[in-house]
Design a protein around this nucleic acid. Structure first.
Lengths: 98, 98
DNA sequence: TAGCGTTATGCTACAGTTTGCATAACCGAT
DNA sequence: ATCGGTTATGCAAACTGTAGCATAACGCTA
């Protein structure tokens, strides 16, 4: 339910302080980004964003504590994995004919 | 282009000796299984099946040597990886509230 | 109060995937 | 010769994910 891309999205929201800006930064429609977030929230049964519409800058979004923890854990989970995969891939398919 | 599920499919074909039976075993329509195989063959540019229609039992399918090697390598590639992942997952999310 | 940029969400369209149905060819066994 | 079960494929329908467009509410700022 989480993925590298989704973790990126969450981090970008945190960095930009807005879902709209995060979506633009990641070059994905706002509609889609929003939908993805809802998906995660639904699957995991938790709220990811602390949002406010209106006000300074039009509004803002920040991550909830749970979301921040989630991303942290996910990052720790995946670090080293892709390296292992490509290493194994090299070992098994390095001599692949095509 | 390969995946756990696809490797399963190939192994099931080998085990049952028939694409039709493999599809039934894996509870996926014959049409779909066939389509998936074509997809892999096309992407990798190799033949996966040694087929015969008609004859004893109506016909049969067995894996080509290349297909068998492919599955073997893929299994070796993924075995250590999934172990690492589930170990890491346990470490990071073992105490996850839900 | 009017304007602006953001959140939130419904409706719709479009593209790609999956699936159902149909048909043809094949060939050993009866 | 006919039957059965299999491979092979075309075609169209159903389903799914992604994206575009529209609209409403919100609240700071000018």
């Amino acid at each position: 339910m989480l993925s590298d891309w989704r973790a990126d999205l969450l981090e970008t929201i945190e960095r930009t302080g807005s879902l709209a800006r995060a979506a633009e930064t990641m070059e994905v429609p706002y509609r889609t980004a929003w939908y993805k977030l809802k998906e995660i929230e639904e699957q995991l049964g938790l709220r990811l964003l602390e949002t406010q519409s209106g006000g300074l800058g039009g509004g803002r979004s920040t991550l909830t504590v749970e979301a921040r923890q989630l991303v942290q854990r996910f990052r720790r989970l995946t670090v080293g994995v892709s390296e292992l995969v490509s290493q194994r891939f090299q070992a098994e398919f390095g001599d692949w004919p095509r």
